[in-house]
Structure formats: structure tokens, C-alpha cells
Amino acid sequence: MKRIIVMAVAIVSIFTYACKKEETTPVSETAGLKKVQEMANDTNTVEIYTTSGALQLGYNDVYLRIRDNATSEYAKDAAFDWMPLMHMMSMTHACPKSQVQKVAGKETLYKGYLVFQMPENASERWTLQLKYQTGGNSFTVEDTVAVPNSTRKRVTVITGTDSKKYIIALVSPETPQVAVNDFKVGLFTMENKMSFPVVKNFAIDIDPRMPSMGNHGSPNNENLSYQSADSLYHGKLSLTMTGYWKINMMLKNADSDVLKGEAVTEENEASSLFLEVEF
């Protein structure tokens, strides 16, 4: 009986695959992406995409396309400047962000990242303002964007022993595996409320633990170090089983002074600086 079911599933999958293949040619500009929302003015509609179809607290790869409202054509010559803003009761601030650039191999798709360091709430919201040029003219769209709270800590804002504010955000793994995962983190400092530049050449030591199971760790992790190619910190994260992992961290400056975080020991269960993954 089991075998029959397996065979039936196999046959169905082969057919579905065959059918899908026909439908998906030619390859779409936004394959693998889901639309989050649209922002429109009189001339254009800007489409915002992410892989999940939503924005989340912490690091987000954000994809943009500009559609002409009249012709439905997508702009190929766009240049973007964007400004995410958190409208708090007492003040307004921005968040770490990258430049927006055209995605290699695509004609109409643009990409950048935003790191939302706090979630929205009933009275405090994020807005995203997009200024762009196309066809020699400048335009602006602006709207609120939804950044709900996350169950696990994907981003953390800390004050180092140097009295500077830092933002550390999990970039990958997006879908952790029981394996050695490529671990990427963004590190930014808060110059002022509107400026959050990338911090270069620091180091972040990591110690992943499972608090629900005796706070055990994992072997063969690789501490995070700065990579100029993408301005992110790269390391290796070993996860020996599924579940909830707390990634304890120690942030060190270029002189190897610890700015934040403590080593995990028998006495000290966790570092004050950490990110979390759960899968």
C-alpha cells in the first residue's frame, strides 16, 4: 500500500514538474520573490518585494521595480535614494540601510537592504520614502510599511564600553540547517539619529547554545570577521539539532577590546549580547 502511494506521488510530481516547466518560461524578473506592497504617485507605481512577501524586524533584502502607470512598462534606468523612518512618540529616527543598486542579470529589478532595529506598535510606525529618477525626471513615493515584532531576536541594539551605540543584525542563515551554516551578520554604529554606517574590521566571537537542553554548545564554529566584499561579517555556525539556539556573542573592536558581551561559562549561562535562531 505504502509503495503504491509513493509511486502515485512520484508520478504526480513528475507531471506537475513537467507542466510547471512550460509555464515558467520565459524567466520572470521577480522569480522567487513575493510582493510586499506597492507605493504609487501619479506617474509610477513602485513595487516592493522580499523573498518572504513581508518586511521583518532586523535585516531585510528589499527588491524594487518601477512601473509606468500609463504603459505598464518597467523602468530600466532608475536610480534610487531611500529613507526609512521610525515615527516614535518623542522623536523620529532612521535605520541602517544600503545603497539601492540594479540586480546583476536583471533589467528592471533593484535591490538594497534595510535593517529595522525596532518593531512597530500601535502608536509608532515605520515609513519608507523612495526618491528615484527615471527618464531624466525625479519622483517621490512614500508610505507606511509594516514591521511586526519577531519571536526571536534577529537584531540587537547595544551600547559598547566605548559609549557608542551599535546595531547587530542576523543576515544569514535565513533557513538554518542541522549543519555548518554560513553565518553572516551586519554591524552598524549609530552616528546620529539619521546615520548608521557599517563598522569595519571589528570582530565578533560566537558561542551558540541551547538553553532548553542544558545550555549545550556546538563544535567547529567560526567567529565572525569583516569581509569588505559585502561589508558584512562572515563566520560559520554549527547547529547540531533543530530547535531554539541562542547565539551568544562578544563584540571586539579592531584592538580586540571587548565592547559588549561575556564568555559563556558554568557560572555565566549567557552573554548580554546575543542573537537567536529557531527552526
Partner: peptide, 16 residues
């Protein structure tokens, strides 16, 4: 296989 059930039932089960 080994599946471990955290005390906090909202947490994902641990599997290896």
C-alpha cells in the same frame, strides 16, 4: 532519531 521536547511548549522541538 532523537527528538527532545522543551519544557516551553511554544518552542520548536529539537531533532537530530
Amino acid at each position: 532519531e532523537m527528538t527532545m521536547y522543551p519544557k516551553d511548549t511554544a518552542e520548536q522541538i529539537m531533532f537530530m
